[in-house]
């Protein structure tokens, strides 16, 4: 596989095949936002530090600012727009787990993956995963309550 210049690629996003015109050096985040209109994933640091741009690639959380769009070819991408009535969305609403909401897509996506992959995650695993995302508004307690409420549902 090679991409030498700007060209059209096909991505599988939220269960749909979408095509986009990309430069090989374009980031997945920019392509999702600017070309596919999926602006749920947010740019904040574009340096891998904050997690606001997190999406799922084959079920795993990935910071889409540190992935090339061409790298995503052949993988299944889920963005926040692809979650519909996921228990975590309800939990975030119920627990007031956001204020400005700018970090929220990334947090929910990461939590969602965690709940799927480790439905019985213990505190250490939750911390390890969720430390990948920054929130400047909340004190994290509400986010913690939201993830816990979903994990315990999984257990019961």
């Amino acid at each position: 596989m090679k991409f030498l210049d700007t060209g059209t690629i096909e991505l599988l996003v939220n269960g749909e095949k979408r095509s986009a015109l990309v430069r090989p050096s374009d980031l997945l985040l920019d392509v999702l936002r600017d070309q596919l209109g999926l602006t749920g994933a947010k740019p904040s640091c574009k340096n891998g530090d904050c997690g606001a741009c997190t999406v799922l690639v084959d079920g795993w959380p990935v910071k889409s600012c540190l992935m090339l769009a061409v790298e995503a070819i052949g993988h299944e991408i889920i963005t926040i727009e692809g979650l519909q009535n996921a228990p975590l969305q309800q939990a975030f609403v119920d627990e007031f787990a956001f204020q400005c909401g700018y970090c929220t897509s990334g947090f929910i996506i990461n939590c969602h993956a965690l709940a799927r992959i480790h439905p019985k995650a213990d505190e250490a695993v939750i911390r390890e995963w969720l430390q990948s995302n920054l929130c400047r508004c909340t004190g994290y307690e509400e986010i913690s309550k939201a993830i816990h409420s979903v994990l315990s549902t999984h257990k019961s």
């Binding site: 596989m1 090679k2 991409f3 030498l4 210049d5 700007t6 050096s25 920019d30």
Partner: peptide, 11 residues
Amino acid sequence: MIPFDFEYYKP
């Protein structure tokens, strides 16, 4: 945003 172009190969 990478401000320049490069070629991408996946051998």
